[in-house]
Design a protein around this nucleic acid. Structure first.
Lengths: 290, 290
DNA sequence: TCGAGACTGTTATATTTTTTTCACAATTTT
DNA sequence: AAAATTGTGAAAAAAATATAACAGTCTCGA
């Protein structure tokens, strides 16, 4: 444990379990900008982590240092050694694992996906899509297929809080709600379709398109055939070192859209969220934040 | 402080010619192990460079800083920026959008989450968890709560293809399958629990723990209370510029685990995937790949 | 539900360290 | 030799740290 080969970062992480709430909060804050934040004055660190000055002093000693200056000098020593060392590259994500480890390879691939996907996105189209989705006067249909079902559900769950007047449609479902057939011209469909593209989803899109509804499509880099019917298409790169494709990038886009729509409807959302909080408090479904 | 694009190292080197002998000696010493030596006390730096204390004070002001502490805080700021790495900063993701656009801010936050999360992961623990989950002789229970339900379902969906003998439990469900109460010692629970932590999930974990089953937990950086019962915990950073937390990082880990487990069980998975393909072809649920 | 105990922030103070500045002598440079 | 530079020693000022006492809060077990 007290081996010289151990970095202070390791040491903190190791003891993370034995720390109390405020101390853990502090520890995480230190790791956040490691090691810079630990090299400033104690008071600044405390403020940064939103804990009190004594908490910092107490934890540093708990970690086994004689005092804050002692802790700092070890940090500097580590920084010194690191700068000297031959391995200055920080290209691995899971630092404790070799770069060939799946953790690093997979993350590399996903970051690549994110980079390439975002690079192709037209921000105006994105904003336009958000505006469409945010408009409560349009009925919002959200549809996913077999794989994308979870994404659609995630999106639906959040939209439910943000706005009224929406429906979750599972394209693989044998029975579509009949009012879907009555979709109006002003309605919006958010459709998820990645390979392998599903016939049902295409049919659904055709119905929507025939009724003149707007279609926002999340698909992969090869583009679902729904693409021809969609008003706005987001194609996400989904390549991963796996037998399956990665949904992570699409998830990122979906979450960004949720955040954006939420901002557009903030007044109403706020109210709805407060109601939700109340409900949760009443049902005691959740524990108090610890 | 004047030029943002210039590092302090650059600044020192630039002025190197206009410095006197002792000052140059000091400057070179600072650059020797940069930036560590500049972050210690002034007196230590002076001693290190074999110059007097006033020389250090004089030069720092000559370089344009208000005082030694000012110089230090700039150094720390630089270190901070550098630690973020080239990927996190200095790059706009959606190139067509300004860096203040939500697309870029959100992605920045998520990349940060990924970096910090992966940095804390113990690859051995990860491999161990994958091995547990891959073992078909253990019954696999997958449980998620309100928010994490979609993640759990996504994981379950893929595990279904990879291995038999598994169950999806929705912790918020009013009725848990009765055989959950008969969980054996060798069984494995994969539990998702992020804030706000759910009491039902904790109860479920307690049952599992009481029966001696293994518990693998996916939680957030603050750690669900289930953590105390879990054999292996993955804490994912979930901060985002949004009223909600981001699940993207957790999704990344889940997908990595899926990929890893799939590799471990490849022989069987292959067979099952082929069966699945056949089924899909027969039901004509999917279109041919175009 | 209640109470003991642990945890944390607040406030205050003592202590230590660090920084800044000074005057002046020694040394080097021009 | 004059001017600039540098170190020495010291001391004042400022900042940072360590510690204590205490009250409010939360947790957990009875």
């Amino acid at each position: 444990m007290t081996d010289a080969a151990q970095t202070i970062s390791d040491r903190i992480q190791e003891k993370l379990d034995h720390l109390t709430r405020a101390e853990r909060q502090l520890a995480l804050s230190i790791l956040e900008n490691y090691p810079a934040s630990g090299l400033g004055p104690l008071s600044a660190l405390a403020k940064d982590a939103n804990v009190s000055v004594p908490t910092v002093a107490r934890m540093v000693q708990k970690l086994g240092y004689k005092g804050y200056p002692d802790f700092q000098s070890e940090l500097r020593e580590e920084l010194r050694a690191k700068a000297k060392g031959p391995i200055a590259k920080h290209e691995t994500w899971a630092e404790a694992a070799p770069s060939e480890h799946l953790l690093n390879r997979f993350t590399d691939a996903v970051i690549d996906n994110i980079r390439l996907t975002l690079g192709q996105i037209d921000p105006d189209a994105f904003d336009e899509a958000c505006a469409l989705v945010a408009d409560p006067s349009r009925h919002l249909f959200i549809a996913g297929g077999r794989i994308t079902h979870t994404l659609a559900e995630y999106f639906f769950m959040h939209m439910q809080v943000i706005r009224p007047n929406l429906t979750h449609v599972q394209s693989t479902s044998s029975t579509w709600p009949h009012y879907l057939l009555n979709a109006k011209e002003d309605d919006v469909f958010v459709i998820f379709d990645v390979r392998r593209y599903e016939n049902n989803t295409l049919k659904l899109a055709e119905i929507a398109h025939a009724r003149g509804a707007k279609i926002v499509l999340f698909t992969d880099q090869w583009r679902s055939p729904v693409h021809h019917l969609a008003d706005i298409t987001f194609s996400c790169r989904i390549i991963a070192p796996s037998a399956w494709d990665s949904t992570t990038t699409t998830m990122l886009l979906v979450e960004t859209m949720i955040s954006s729509v939420q901002n557009l409807n903030w007044d109403e959302t706020k109210e709805r969220m407060e109601h939700l909080e109340e409900m949760f408090d009443q049902t005691k479904l959740f524990r108090k934040f610890t």
